[in-house]
Nucleic acid binder design. Structure first.
Lengths: 116, 116
DNA sequence: CAGTATCCCTGTGGATACTG
DNA sequence: CAGTATCCACAGGGATACTG
């Protein structure tokens, strides 16, 4: 039955997958997404909702998320120091994938823990 | 329409997702999976099929993939120096997810390149 | 408030040599 | 053949101070 498990991947696929991972990889991307999910929009609010994150890391990661079009950075003209980060519509498409990834991760943990 | 894009993620989800990424993260996991997909089963064959990989990195990554039950390491009793790495049935389930991730990565690249 | 700038430290991966 | 062992380099991230 299992004499030929096929997962066809070519060079371009390897690249594409590494790109996908990169978008939400690293230590802070997911916690930041989580924080914005929970309604946080402002830099300081996000910062304080994530334990141990530094301004530096938050700043860098917000820029990358913005570059990948998952969030937008809006400057409120009325109050110049009021900047809001929000998800884009485009982020939704990624949301579906993220859900799959989360589900697999949970199932996987059970598999690994049970057989260990 | 987009006043509330929701991607619900909680703390456990963040962990689960980071686990998922970890399983195929890093520089070499995918190239190794790719190589085994292409029919390579032996250490040296895999090594030579992946440009610039070192024995050390190959060894470390094969162990991790084995620990995550995506591949098996079989020692051929007849020829003691003949060891074969193969995908597990379990790897198939991951295969589906990997396909989604690859597709998203390719679409994403187009989105980023076009609007840049 | 929303960031930069600087400096520093650790961990991941690379190079090379060695081994059952 | 299929790995280990050892040493090293460098990048990503942490701590802290500064700024428009």
């Amino acid at each position: 039955m299992q004499d030929h498990v096929k997962i066809h991947i070519d060079e371009a696929d390897v690249k594409a997958l590494q790109d996908t991972i990169y978008v939400i990889g690293g230590k802070w991307k997911l916690p930041i997404i989580h924080s914005i999910c929970n309604g946080n929009k402002r830099f300081t609010d996000i910062e304080q909702s994530i334990p141990f994150i530094t301004k530096r890391m938050l700043s860098l990661n917000l820029k990358e998320l913005e570059a990948n079009k998952l969030i937008t950075r809006k400057v409120d003209v009325d109050a110049s120091t009021n900047i809001e980060y929000e998800f884009t519509e485009y982020a939704k498409e990624y949301g579906t994938l993220i859900t799959y990834m989360i589900e697999w991760g949970k199932k996987h943990k059970r598999v690994i823990v049970e057989n260990s």
